[in-house]
Design a protein around this nucleic acid. Sequence first.
DNA 1: AATAGTATTGCAAATGTTTTCATAATTTCG
DNA 2: CGAAATTATGAAAACATTTGCAATACTATT
Lengths: 343, 343
Amino acid sequence: MSNFQKGKVDIVAVAKAAKVSPSTVSRTFNHPNLVSPATRKKINRAVQSLGYIRNRAAQTMHGKRSGTIGLVVPTINHAIFAEVIQAFSDSIDKAGFSLLLASHGYDLDREYAMVRKFLEHRVDGVALVGLEHSEATARLIEQQKIPALAIWNYSEDSVLPCVGADNRLAGRLAAEHLLALGHRDIGLIFPKTTGNDRAQNRLSAVHDALREMGISVPSEHESETPYSVSQAKQAAISLLTERSRPTALLCGNDVIAQGALFAAQSLGLKVPDDLSIIGIGDFKGSADVEPGLTTIRIPAETIGTLAGERFTDYITSENPGPFKICCQLERVVRATTSPVSVR
Amino acid sequence: MSNFQKGKVDIVAVAKAAKVSPSTVSRTFNHPNLVSPATRKKINRAVQSLGYIRNRAAQTMHGKRSGTIGLVVPTINHAIFAEVIQAFSDSIDKAGFSLLLASHGYDLDREYAMVRKFLEHRVDGVALVGLEHSEATARLIEQQKIPALAIWNYSEDSVLPCVGADNRLAGRLAAEHLLALGHRDIGLIFPKTTGNDRAQNRLSAVHDALREMGISVPSEHESETPYSVSQAKQAAISLLTERSRPTALLCGNDVIAQGALFAAQSLGLKVPDDLSIIGIGDFKGSADVEPGLTTIRIPAETIGTLAGERFTDYITSENPGPFKICCQLERVVRATTSPVSVR
DNA sequence: AATAGTATTGCAAATGTTTTCATAATTTCG
DNA sequence: CGAAATTATGAAAACATTTGCAATACTATT
């Protein structure tokens, strides 16, 4: 239990204490089967008593992996990515990796800066959200030959390996659900789509689906708001107090949908009788609001876990093959949508 | 723009390309004023064309800071810590640090493991949530002389520097609010308090405040649930369907309070007429639910930002003095509480 | 009991930087 | 114009590891 730390405790201090060479100490950690049980015991005792902790920085210098993976997300703050981050973190932790996390606030230039920062730390891989990134980021990844992964969005012609869902399909499913219920006056509340291919994919798919039914959304029924319950609530309130009110609201994600729901409630509108609302995502909590939110479920936890597993495999494997995983969406019909009422 | 990467690009490759010595290249980065503008230009050009990226692992080996700070939170998943993590991340990023993030799921032994892991990465400091940690963790921090910080909770007799709020006071404020409104039958929904000093502080303060008024909470009005909207909702439903129903619910945090609110709504209870509900935290979204949640505001963003600033100062300063910062709580009265109605 | 084989250990080089010290080049100014 | 001061650069040691190779100590086989 005693530790006499005169100066730093490094591998040679341990070696000295155990009366062996540094090489042997190193081997005890990295190839324990190459060292005799007796010396291993001596060394472990020395490690204990000195409180030695391995120095990954020094290991990294030898071409050993750093044991870190960088994840860059648009935002940590909102419910949106919290679940994937958690799952991804747990998943790579199981494989012995640590998570370097950064956010860019939907600014792809900041995303580039974050990736660069991670590269300085010699991360073993970098995971990004979505498939749309700046030219510079792509070049950086290419040049540095750093394993990279795109999560959250899926496309078969992604350049990077990806684990995610088909956001275009998500938009279409949401639209089709409302259409099937007979809604024709549909309001759209989405975030800005620059630097956010998920939102863009969803929105364009929604427009496609509506157009196929010969429906176009009047501009006063289309609103733009950041991913924030309160701002979405405001946006929804002003949309819903226009002269003509849509019978349904299709929201860019569940955060916005919750805002819309609260907006409706604060205006005294009955959901779903007076107004149907559908979100996309099925975030934590969406099941529990009253009434329960109808939404298109994106399996965040599955995506995070799978991404972590496959990516660490990819990184540690000898000759890694690229992979693309499309996680299934699911229409979750709860209580915020109903057939359009006869007027 | 060309890069001929025959092998690795390190500082000596850059030196060669710029026809200077490695030392000069290093100096250009670390003490640019010591090298002539002309050579600096040459070197920068070489850096560009080779796509060189500095290697912090190698720097770290020289006793230079690694430029990383480890943050260990109980959970990333819920709204609870998302806001602090975001603020902390942004704040340390401004000071040039990167965030290593891990979660322990309210298990203090896992917390220890995470801190150890971070120590292997030679983080420049480690931030933990709360003031209660395992004996082993405390010893580790002490022995390794690693700068450590406690966030989220504040106590003047904390051993570690801390930036947070007085959770005992938070509990008391919540209780006093309900008492002032005339409530005497108060239900309590809290998480398990082991390994969670925040919850423990709040709960014991609530009990103290009630006791001072001669009130004791019958066990059927006290319920335990994890921080999860849906589980809290279930817990609240069963509490509210007991024979005798309390007139108010005091919840361990806003996640639980939201669950309780939804529970009440799903039971057809009018909030606040039939039931008052108060939370603690004032998370994102609490302002926007309908009716808006009355709560005790813990300034998560302020805490995160301040913690990041002070901690990086602390780490980079020559002779750091310890600090303890108590962030002010605020009672936020919205629409889920009202005076107890005459029965 | 000698030989071959195997298990265990140590030596030394290598990894990519930074920094101290020394040296060379340039400027200042008496 | 030359000495002193200043500025710019390079050589080499140091940082904490890992690993290929060589050396030594055992074990088994005949």
